[in-house]
Design a protein around this nucleic acid. Sequence first.
DNA 1: TCCCTAAGATTGTTCAACACTTGACAGATT
DNA 2: AATCTGTCAAGTGTTGAACAATCTTAGGGA
Lengths: 242, 242
Amino acid sequence: MGESPDLRELRRLSVADEVAGVLRLRILTGELRPGTALLEIPLASSLGVSRNTMREAMKVLSLEGLLTRSVHRGIAVAELTPQDIRDIYQLRRMLELSAVQAAEHPSKDHLERLRSLVDQYEAAVRAGDWTSAVASDLQFHSLLIRFHNNRRLESFYQKVLRELRMGMVLVDRGLDNPTRLIRVHRSIYQLLAAGKLQQCAAALAQHLEESETRISKVISDHAWARNRMPGPRESAPESKAV
Amino acid sequence: MGESPDLRELRRLSVADEVAGVLRLRILTGELRPGTALLEIPLASSLGVSRNTMREAMKVLSLEGLLTRSVHRGIAVAELTPQDIRDIYQLRRMLELSAVQAAEHPSKDHLERLRSLVDQYEAAVRAGDWTSAVASDLQFHSLLIRFHNNRRLESFYQKVLRELRMGMVLVDRGLDNPTRLIRVHRSIYQLLAAGKLQQCAAALAQHLEESETRISKVISDHAWARNRMPGPRESAPESKAV
DNA sequence: TCCCTAAGATTGTTCAACACTTGACAGATT
DNA sequence: AATCTGTCAAGTGTTGAACAATCTTAGGGA
């Protein structure tokens, strides 16, 4: 297929990975809704890549838990069940709270980045750009995990939050009081920067609690259209025996 | 390539996933040593599959962290750095200890499975089957995580332990005192079953400490053959920006 | 010796074909 | 009418061959 013959910027990424990136974005922004079936050939040609490349990209996303594949039946954008929400928030509590409590000597750089994300979040909310607000929100929380100083944990946590983000984008548009969340984030940041780690953890815990309540309510309300695919639905990503 | 025309047992797995399974096993048993370069075409034809299928399988394993790929330069079995060991054991402490402490009301079935793995471990050690011993060992620890009752966490943890297992198989053949580890495992199990969770956690903590010391010593000793690939080596699995 | 270039090898990507599953539909059977 | 069965189309799973892009290596020239 005819490509733009640019050598944009010495790409270090394979086309397949770029395609995975494009799809990931479309899923996370809600442009591709959960449950949507994805056909290999139309999707591949719409992006100007071959079917094999598209398959590689889809393999990536299905391992990330953003797509679910059942053999010979097709691929669809993953859907979050109430159980998924419960799992994810249990992990958030476990990992974010202990991260904050481990933040004895935060680096200037790290704090600065957190503050910047609070600002971005505020700007996005005020601008009404909900997709971008959700992104800043989750990036903020993801950055908290960095206090554990463990790359594996960080990449796992980003994967977890990506799954959540997929649900949040659809969910929170009609949020009653978004400016309140700005204050909450800012206060979490300030307590952290002031070294009041226990208070910070407490604030964070309450924030997570409210967040889970809100999203799990909406998710279970949306459980109407989920009556197809009666087969046993695996909520965890593809995996093999050890 | 000529296949066996059997319909063995209505396979629910794609060939690509089966191939991934074969390679995973070869890596985890140490048949494929860390650092080994993998060529697509020879490997594919040796398993009787096409190159595309082999690529899909390799994509899976590289996302699992068992293979490292650098564009246009090839794929190799991943190597554990001392930093990796540190990360992994930090996670093990964080997740296994809290799991044990959460085991207030263990199910009969769960306890039974743990006990069975202790037995398997003992049998493997006595039989001198080190590969299988390592497998039982890590399965035991992986099963501890189940007390968290969180599928995402469980599948993440299995991935982490797989990375570790790759290193352990090469490492521990000349272990000075393997029967001592049998006693340690058994005592961890017994404390758990007796509900003495704090003592159990303490024993587990010490066990992990010794284990880390032992393996990190051997890993850093083995750091001689690691002088190729001077480029920036990513130890975390492939990932994209959020 | 050092730099440059060309050749070879290997990966990245595309294309076209075929086999196999699945789901749906139409006709036959009761 | 309801159910069963065979057929068929759509879509995925897999293959094999080709070409493009890139890295590595070996020579050749200064």
